[in-house]
């Protein structure tokens, strides 16, 4: 059985009238530095009942004078008791896919060095570099390598030089000369 403290222990019309009398609502910006803001962790700790008395009093003072903060606390508190229904499957599926993708490392203008310095970017660069070297090496090997290339080039240079210095020697006239000799002999 609950104890009653007598008149005024529960909200009533007299209490409501008194409350209206003492309220003086003003929509004014909070002076900077006048009241330290209550952060998410402070509010969560207060909702969990984990704050020491002095800290709890500060949060309660803040909630009593900041309607939007009280809305946030009430919403969070009620959501905790309402979170029994399963969320749609697609929410979990999409959310689970977030880690490891670009959105996770969205830099928001933190600069080149951070972008280059991130390990994932480094791995990507390394993979591309290894691929490039692999393709180049394979193509080079299939083409015969450096020795084959230099040898072919040297042969072309030698033929060109022979053509200039000794044009007749540049051609293989052996067979032609043998045919001429044969013709002469035949006529004999």
């Amino acid at each position: 059985m609950e104890r009653d403290d007598g008149p005024g222990s529960a909200p009533d019309a007299a209490g409501r009238a008194l409350w209206r009398r003492l309220k003086n609502t003003s929509a004014a910006p909070v002076p900077v530095g006048a009241e330290p803001p209550v952060g998410a962790l402070d509010l969560a700790a207060w909702l969990d009942g984990k704050l020491p008395a002095s800290e709890a009093a500060r949060v309660e003072r803040y909630l009593a004078s900041h309607p939007a903060a009280l809305d946030a606390a009430l919403d969070a508190s009620l959501a905790l008791s309402e979170a029994t229904a399963a969320a749609p499957e697609r929410l979990s599926t999409r959310a689970q896919a977030l880690v490891g993708f670009a959105v996770e490392g969205r830099a928001g203008g933190r600069g080149w060095f951070r972008w280059i310095g991130s390990w994932r970017r480094s791995v990507e660069f390394a993979a591309v570099a290894i691929g490039f070297v692999g393709v180049s090496g394979t193509g080079y090997a299939l083409g015969g390598g450096l020795h084959e290339t230099y040898a072919a080039e040297a042969r072309r240079d030698a033929v060109a030089l022979e053509l200039v210095t000794n044009p007749l020697a540049a051609f293989d006239t052996g067979e032609l000369w043998a045919e001429i000799q044969l013709d002469r002999g035949g006529r004999r």
Partner: peptide, 23 residues
């Protein structure tokens, strides 16, 4: 983080002396 959780800019003051009611 400190400015995140409580986005309220409107302040409601009670028309009573400070300290009359506890927080």
């Amino acid at each position: 983080e400190a400015a995140m959780a409580v986005e309220g800019r409107h302040v409601e003051r009670l028309n009573i002396p400070t300290g009359l009611l506890t927080d």
